[in-house]
Design a protein around this nucleic acid. Structure first.
Lengths: 206, 206, 206, 206
DNA sequence: AATGAATGAGCATTCATTCAT
DNA sequence: GATGAATGAATGCTCATTCAT
């Protein structure tokens, strides 16, 4: 019967989340994490094989749902583009978009801290390109999905260059929300509003 | 004695700007900076007391104009709000807004690299909160200046929370432009366009 | 209470012998030894004060008989040399030599593993010079016992220096046999054969 | 003009040779090496990239001539065996053997310390199998070259098993000589005598 | 008795900073 | 002024040893 084992692991994880969030992967030190968890340095290594493993333990599960989410969207876009060619006025994808949005909001509400760490504090780990991947995806969505509509309607406002900036800005802003607020429900609301703010404008223009 | 004092200093600064921009404050090493400046490590310390001082030398002047800029706006807003109370229909501030915009565009055009370093690469320095401060300021502007108009007109779209998100997104977009482009003039154009993109929508709604 | 005290101790010792033989004193870890003995790490320390004590427990008894053996021979040689002075043609020591040989073969057959650990895997312990000591002893035997005969007979082949090399080679051969074979009886045979190989040549020359 | 640079490097190397010889690669610590060289820990890393590089700097050149030496012999044996098939009584290889012996003696005289480190203290490095390779080579020589003669003449003394033990013992004994003596010239003499002792006996029996 | 969680000193390595030349 | 050698504190990690249960 291990006494308090799980409790210690949780303390280490909690301390690590705080430190990684504050200082990033490279900046946070195992000694710091250990001492702020009230645990000896050596003992941390009983629970996590190394710094990487500790980071992964925090980030991996969220990363997986996040990757699954990206793939889902990616497929959706591919289908969509084919559909659009045949019938550009089809708006049946609205339902699908809402589904995606809900999924995203759920991930944000539940795991905003881990997402922030993945997107913003993972330099030096295998996740360091995650943010870029997300930005590229969003860019792809905008380019393939919205621009055709817009060009069709003579709206040149969003040129190719601008979609990238727009996408990056959207992702970064979500990071800022994650950084500023501490309650999942509040974050969900804000992200939702933020999505509207960004994308409704697009739709309105269309 | 191949170089004049000032020349050496400039070489160090130029090299440091590149490295800080590429790797951030913590990631850049003094050795790297020295060697890519073609200067001995020890000599760097003749010109700059330490890593912090070198960073400050790059960032401080721009930071100061940037802070001055923030204060100017801040005052402007305060005045404005008082004015608004008396005569809500007064639109004389449009001119002031344009002035602010020009000042901002100028700073962007001239010092986009330093600004990017301050906003995005200063983790571990006293500037690490600069981005947050800027976002807060913009938030304040929006809240105090635009919201009254909008509420007055029955537009509830931009609630208190949303202004923050809006501000963050705006600042981030500018950082992304700084990150992506290399020429001051191009950056000026893009930033200007983004200001329109963001704020014209506001104005249109108003 | 599944095991008697003695049984646990034996399991630890058996596991430790294997690990020390495989990896040497420094290379073997207490964790490894404990887990391959099916005993908790902490419990090892109930039976053996520390790593050194565990090592000694394995090696000390064999080391003692081995030291006793060395002293016996040493005395024998001293006597012998005195005897020789008086009557150089006396060959009564052949019987004594055979006795020594038998004793040695017995130690080899019974304790080859421990001997190998003492001679070959004890770097970092107080036994690390045991091999050298054994070589020196054999050297002394050869020098005091065989050389006089040989010089007497005009055989200069084995000079002072060479006896040392000869001894070293002999001891090493025995270590190699210990390393390569696993059965006491087979080892006895091989060691016996090697003794012949080495010493018969000497005798033949004499 | 670096002041004393080469001197410091030599001090580090000398200290490292002593420590590696005393404690082996794994056992010697960089701190120890640094302090016994009268140099700060960090400074060691100015001269050698890491522990491995320091070890290699000591060992690599000697290892190369030693490998070249092994290859030479290997080729010689292959040729020889072919020759032997045709004319088993041919003894022209005596000259070649002497050449090999001289080469070996030279390496021993000049680099006995490095050789000892390669053969005996390199556990944990890429050289850790060097001793085994040498033993195998000698075994091959004995098996292919001497055994045929001996079997031909009805001498069964050296069976297949015994050649390995014989080879290993020979190599180990040379290591022991390296360990015990400190002067290159003395070592040369001893190794030479030792070669005679081992191989002349073989020849005499043939 | 037994467990395995906890400790802390030690190791290789890096890097901002200092200093003799 | 300039150089780059030297320093030492910090980092990630391991392992013999201790101790609460």
């Amino acid at each position: 019967m291990p006494y308090l084992k799980e409790e210690v692991k949780e303390k280490i994880l909690a301390s690590a989340i705080v430190k990684f969030k504050e200082q990033g992967y490279a900046g946070a030190s195992m000694r710091q994490i250990a001492s702020s968890a009230g645990v000896s340095l050596g003992n941390v290594y009983r629970y996590f094989e190394n710094k990487d493993a500790l980071f992964n333990a925090i980030v991996e599960p969220v990363y997986k749902s996040y990757i699954a989410f990206i793939h889902d969207i990616d497929n959706l876009i591919a289908d969509d583009v084919n559909t659009l060619k045949e019938d550009p006025s089809d708006t049946s994808n609205i339902a699908e978009i809402n589904e995606i949005k809900d999924k995203l909001l759920e991930i944000c509400e539940e795991h905003y801290t881990e997402l922030l760490i993945i997107l913003d504090k993972s330099a030096g780990t295998k996740y360091e390109d995650a943010k870029q991947a997300l930005i590229m995806l969003l860019d792809k969505i905008l380019t393939k999905k919205f621009l055709p509509f817009m060009k069709q309607e003579g709206l040149s406002t969003l040129s190719d260059d601008v979609t990238y900036i727009f996408s990056a800005s959207f992702i970064e802003s979500i990071c800022i929300i994650f950084r500023k607020y501490e309650a999942g429900s509040q974050i969900r609301l804000l992200v939702e509003r933020f999505i509207s703010l960004f994308f409704n404008d697009l739709e309105k223009r269309i």
